[in-house]
């Protein structure tokens, strides 16, 4: 069986969608692309305001190490109070937040 081998598979074709030098905001409803300064240790999401500590796997591959905890806690407490004030939230009903 001479196998069709030259054509790219779906996975191989998707390789071109990879981006380097950026991270995705780890706030799941934001997920905005953040482009930190090369080598930066801290970054703030311009979309949602979350602040993160960064780690560089390689010079072109940054990764979010974790949130800046005090900022995280502050936003969390505020959000929880807001959510409690409205109604019992369930996944799927939070769209457009």
């Amino acid at each position: 069986m001479p196998l069709e081998n030259t054509k790219q598979s779906a996975a191989e074709a998707l390789r071109q969608t990879r981006t380097f030098g950026k991270v995705r905001c780890h706030n799941p409803s934001c997920m905005g692309r953040i482009q930190p300064e090369p080598g930066a240790r801290l970054v703030k999401c311009p979309t949602c305001g979350m602040e993160y500590r960064l780690y560089w796997v390689s010079p072109t591959l940054p990764r979010i190490r974790g949130p800046v905890w005090d900022v995280n806690r502050e936003i969390a407490e505020k959000t929880f109070a807001e959510k409690q004030a409205v109604t019992k939230p369930t996944a799927g009903k939070m769209k457009g937040k």
Partner: peptide, 19 residues
Amino acid sequence: EPCKRGAPDVIGMCIDREQ
């Protein structure tokens, strides 16, 4: 039982039984 503490975005979330 919505989650009471943790990351801001998913705090207070639950699965809707009907859905």
